[in-house]
């Protein structure tokens, strides 16, 4: 419920960029308040009528979105300085701790900007290839049931499997930058996830070798921002620690057995 004293409009400052490697600039829009309004709705309102507070008709803002239910991971943005999904970023909450009745919306900084708020997160998917994030099944033919699994193990794996590759953990990670090769919490957690599956284990050695290389799990500086910004509340730091343990054991074994 909007209190009667609440202004009918608010301002949105959007960091825009016309293309890759182009200079970024800010534009400000005045937007009408509506009930249950989130940042996506705000962007839709702007798209329908892209006129800045200065009265300038501009090109509509480009952004990435999908399900709008916080499961597809598309609409990650930096809103009021914090990375999050814009579909679940509600205007009243954002205005509550904002100055001047203004919300700022920026693209993620750890990925190259395609245009405006739309960034290229291909690196996250490439990292999944690096850690061989799949179960090496024999094929799609009917070979009966999969391996049994305890409910506890399922619960542990399920929590990690909810990762929607949104990139919040990487955006907030001080160790993950545009130009280094750190894998980050997402890929490390996925590597651990597959190491814990009975068939997925077959590639454990290869995954751990990938985690041992440059940008691997040892590069994690334990700032633990990832777990705090994860919209799916995935126990990322625990997954990283568990991957670290697997790697320690693996390295010791390898040292003594040579394989």
């Amino acid at each position: 419920m909007i209190a009667p004293a609440t202004p009918k409009t608010f301002k949105v400052r959007i960091k825009r960029q016309d293309g890759r490697d182009q200079p970024a600039y800010w534009q400000e829009f005045e937007v009408e308040r509506r009930p249950s309004q989130n940042i996506i709705a705000v962007l839709q309102q702007i798209a329908a009528n892209p006129v800045t507070t200065a009265g300038e008709q501009v090109e509509p803002v480009v952004w990435d979105s999908g399900c709008l239910e916080e499961v597809c991971g598309s609409c990650t943005m930096v809103i009021n300085g914090h990375v999050r999904q814009s579909c679940s970023a509600l205007v009243p909450d954002l205005l509550e701790d904002a100055d001047d009745n203004t919300i700022t919306v920026e693209p993620m900084t750890k990925f190259p900007v395609v245009r405006d708020l739309f960034v290229d997160r291909q690196r996250m998917f490439d990292n999944l290839v690096k850690v061989k994030a799949w179960v090496p099944i024999d094929g799609t033919h009917d070979l009966g049931e999969g391996p049994k699994e305890s409910p506890e193990k399922q619960q542990e794996r399920y929590a990690i499997s909810r990762c929607m590759t949104c990139g919040c953990c990487l955006e907030a990670c001080p160790q993950f930058t545009l130009d280094n090769d750190f894998l980050g919490a997402q890929a490390i957690a996925q590597a651990y996830y597959f190491n814990e599956h009975e068939t997925g284990k077959k590639l454990k050695g290869e995954r751990l070798e990938a985690l041992a290389g440059p940008g691997g799990v040892a590069d994690c500086g334990n700032a633990q921002n990832c777990v705090k910004v994860c919209p799916k509340e995935i126990p990322l730091t625990e997954a990283i620690a568990k991957a670290g343990r697997q790697l320690t054991v693996h390295a010791v074994k390898k040292f003594f057995t040579g394989k």
Partner: peptide
């Protein structure tokens, strides 16, 4: 069964 083999974390019984 196939999805199970692919590692989909279906909920489990005891």
């Amino acid at each position: 069964n196939l999805l199970d083999r692919m590692g989909v974390p279906f909920n489990r019984t005891n």
